[in-house]
Write a protein that binds this DNA or RNA. Structure first.
Lengths: 174, 174
DNA sequence: GGATATTGCTCAGTATGCTGACTATCAGTA
DNA sequence: TACTGATAGTCAGCATACTGAGCAATATCC
């Protein structure tokens, strides 16, 4: 698609541009930002309505700690594709809320071993319905089939781009 | 393709689901975050390689100012679905870089009229190839048809969820 | 064993995004 | 005109995310 047009700023701001670049709605980057924006808002609303104060990021971290007791911060960051500098603050807040514990590792004195607390376990259990509801709400405009297809395409694009961000996904080695 | 679930560390792999929530890869919210994470990294890398220092957010704001000369901040925020408190800082930085101007409006003394500068126009023109390249790179794992389908589904989900975030899209009224 | 490289974590700084509050201004109405 | 409500913008505060730097501890190589 080519667009050769003279650089005239049109007097009517209400009509769409042709001398401008593509419309925002044709930019996957812009759509990614919008979808993420809505997804976070829906998550916070559903979880908040359920009486909890946990962000999507904190939820993912806590669930991963529960599933992998004693793991260190770098491994945790790799499993959920967070930057290692971000995970520090996230864990700070989980610890401060009493949902997780951070202990010095005996094997490697640089590392911290992470554990979920009973309170964290309780929170995870009680919060799950709200989290699942949020996942449904953020896809409410799509049929079940479309929702599946969206997730498939996102997974595929993410897999291909995994190494392009500073915090790629790193799977657990056996 | 194998997928080692991050929630598999439970000692008994025979009961994969009862005490664990869904895998992250089945959560549209998590996929949204990952895709957005990669999209931003790709944008910054492509634009940076081209010799410019502009974020995706700043780019969208600048392009929208160019297309709608003299618009105010609230209208701009609505057109690109930014929160009004976010746009203040974004414009601060565009102004500080000499790419845009913020003037008091004569019609409404509360409002600020925004204009792109010549420098901003030059920057936009020169940056466009990098921006378009970034959009291609972030979809590099998908066929052209799949990329189109992903964008279609994102648009549909976003439209349905538009009002769920604090900063919904507000189109220009004629 | 000792120099070197790497790794785990933290911190300072910057840029989104949001909540909630506040000021200044405008618009509608009694 | 005075009152009331809505609106435009900013600010403080918090939570992601990232860059780049630094420290301490571990691994590796000679």
């Amino acid at each position: 698609m080519l667009t050769i047009s003279i650089l005239v700023n049109d007097p009517a701001p209400s009509c769409p541009k042709e001398n401008s670049v593509k419309d925002n709605n044709d930019m996957p980057g812009h759509l990614a930002r919008r979808f993420q924006q809505i997804a976070v808002a829906v998550f916070l609303a559903e979880v908040g309505d359920a009486g909890f104060d946990l962000t999507p990021v904190q939820y993912a971290a806590l669930a991963t700690i529960k599933a992998n007791p004693g793991l260190d911060q770098v491994t945790l960051a790799g499993l959920i594709a967070y930057d290692r500098t971000t995970i520090t603050g996230v864990i700070d807040r989980l610890v401060q809320k009493g949902l997780a514990e951070r202990r010095a590792s005996s094997r490697d004195r640089r590392a911290r071993e992470l554990e979920i607390t009973d309170e964290g376990r309780r929170t995870l259990r009680k919060i799950t319905p709200a989290v699942e509801s949020a996942q449904r709400v953020m896809l409410r405009g799509l049929s079940a089939k479309e929702g599946e297809e969206l997730m498939r395409l996102l997974r595929k694009a993410i897999t291909a781009g995994n190494e392009l961000s500073r915090a790629p996904l790193r799977e657990m080695q056996a």
